[in-house]
Amino acid sequence: MRAYAIAIYLFLYAPIALIVLFSFNSGLSASDFRGFSIAWYGKVAGNRFVLEAVTHSLIVAAASATLATLFGTMAALALQRVTGWLRAVFDGLTYVAIMVPGIVIGIATLIALVTAFDIVNDLLLAIWPADDPGAVPQLALGYGSIIAAHTLFSLALVIVLVRARIAGMDRSLVEAATDLYATPWGTFRQVTLPLILPAVVAGFLLSFTFSFDDFVIAFFVAGSKTTLPIYVFASIRRGVTPEINAIGTVVLLVSLLLLFSAQILLRRGAKPTRAT
C-alpha cells in the first residue's frame, strides 16, 4: 500500500518536474535535452507579448480578487443574520455560481454582454453629440468583462469560505463586546474582523489564483485583452517550445506561493473551520 501511495505521488509530480527540468534545456526542441541553460527564461522576459499578457492577467486577477473579497465578505457577514427566502435565494445562487461549468458561464456572459453592448452602442451612436461616428464611445469586451466574470465565481468562493469561518466562530465574544457597550462598528473592527481575517485573506489568495489560472472563461470574454493562459494556449497550438516550459515553471511557482500562503492562513487560529 505504501508502494502504491509512492507511485501516485510520482504520477502527480513527475509531469510537473519534467516541465521544470525541460525549461532549463539549452536545445531548441522541447523534447531532447542538451544541457543546462536559462536562455529560455531570458527569451520569455524579452517577449513583449508575454509581458503584455502577464500584465493583463495580473490586473484582472488583482481587480477581481479585490472585488470578490470585499463583496463576498460583506454578503457573508449579512447572511449570518438573514433567514427565510432571502437566505435560500443566496444559498442557491452561491451554489449555482460554483457548480455551473466555467464554459457555460463564459458563453452566457459573452452572449449577454455582446447583446447588451449592441443595444447601448446603438443608443450612444444615436444620442452622442458628435458628427464623426468614430468619436462616439463604444462598449467592448475587455478588462471589464473578464473582471466581472471572474468576480462571479470568486465571489461565491469567498462567501463559502467566510461563512464557514463565521459558523466556527464563538458568538459569545460578539455578545460580550455588545454587553460592554462596544458600538457595532467597534465590535466589528475589534472582534469580528480579526476572527474572520484568515478566511478573508485566504479567499483573496484563492480568488487571485483562480483568476490567474482561468483559461476557459477568459477565452470567451477577453476580447482583445489576451491573458497569460490564453497566450500559452495559443502558443501550444503553434507548437511545443521550451519557452512554454519556462512560462509554466514561473506560473507553477507563483501559484504554489499563493497557495501555501492561503493554507497557512486558513489553518491559523485556535478553532479549525470546516474549510481546508
Binding site: 502527480l12 484563492l206 493562459p229 512560462i247 506560473v251 504554489l256
Partner: peptide, 8 residues
C-alpha cells in the same frame, strides 16, 4: 496540484 495551472 489541483490548484496550480490546469493548462500547464
Amino acid at each position: 496540484p489541483f490548484w496550480t495551472s490546469f493548462l500547464i
